[in-house]
Amino acid sequence: MKTSRVLSRAAAALTLATVAGTAAAHPGHATSLADGLAHPFLGLDHLLAMVAVGLWSARALPAARRWQAPAVFVAAMLAAALAALGGVALPGVEVAIAASVMLCGVLVALGRRMSPNAGLALVALAALAHGLAHGAEAPAGGFAAFAAGFVAATAALHGAGLALAVRAQRLPALAWTVTGAALGAGGLAMLAARL
């Protein structure tokens, strides 16, 4: 099956699943390494945002810089998780996470039309919301193992997005715009459900 068809079908399926009501992976966390590894796979908010960062990296950044967006995301997410663990709290984190999915969809749709540095700043902004949720819901006693797991799983999802995008590099710009729009629509559906 053509990569463009696979990409379009995956984006449509993710959007439909989101609209159907699968929600956030943040109602509460356990604290083991296994829990951390599983966590990013438990909600579409994580899946969509993490894979989108990988897609955008391969689409918008030169090959030698593709590692930067996943690294920025992971670093900002971990910093925010540690801040939340230390007591930093912001209202509306779940709304911000839904908005981050929309933002990641916009990044994918825009691709190279946005400067890499601006895109990396937006990736970091999206990561902050995810990190705040992780840190706020994990007790200090088991945070290190949990954090190691969610960092590894997040990096794996970024890698999956990168691998998919590298295979799909020759797709027309319209396919990327549609994929980004589908990701953004998934985020918009989540946002509507959380408001």
Rank of each mutant, 00 (worst) to 15 (best):
A80N: 06
G86H: 13
L107P: 01
Q169N: 11
L120S: 03
W67Q: 01
A160E: 06
A24Q: 12
S100Y: 02
S8F: 10
V108D: 00
H158G: 01
R59Y: 03
V19M: 11
L195D: 12
A99R: 04
S8E: 08
A160P: 06
S4F: 12
L82W: 13
L183C: 12
V6E: 15
G43R: 03
H134W: 05
L191G: 14
A144M: 13
G184H: 02
A181M: 10
L174K: 15
M50N: 14
A98C: 15
P91Q: 13
L42M: 15
D45A: 07
A30N: 13
H26N: 11
G21C: 06
L16D: 14
A63E: 10
A24P: 08
A63H: 06
Q169H: 15
L33Y: 09
Q68H: 09
M77I: 12
A168V: 06
A30E: 08
E137C: 06
A152P: 04
S100H: 03
L78S: 14
L44T: 09
D45I: 03
V93N: 07
G21V: 05
S8R: 15
A12E: 15
L171W: 05
G187L: 02
T154M: 09
A34F: 13
A118W: 14
G28M: 12
A193C: 08
L61P: 00
L162K: 00
A140Y: 10
A64D: 10
L195M: 10
A24F: 13
F41T: 15
H29T: 05
G105H: 02
H29K: 02
E137V: 05
T15V: 09
L78T: 15
A182V: 04
A38P: 08
A71F: 02
I97L: 05
A60H: 01
L188W: 04
A69S: 09
H134Q: 12
A20G: 09
T177I: 13
L33Q: 04
L14M: 13
A155W: 09
A160D: 07
A127F: 01
W176N: 03
A64L: 15
F150C: 04
A80W: 00
A99Q: 08
V19R: 11
L82T: 13
V51N: 04
M77Q: 08
I97Q: 02
V166K: 09
A118G: 13
L82G: 06
H46N: 08
P116A: 12
A38I: 11
A138G: 08
L164G: 13
H134P: 00
M190T: 06
W56C: 01
F146N: 02
H46Y: 07
A34W: 14
R113W: 13
V178C: 11
A145S: 07
L171Q: 07
A156F: 06
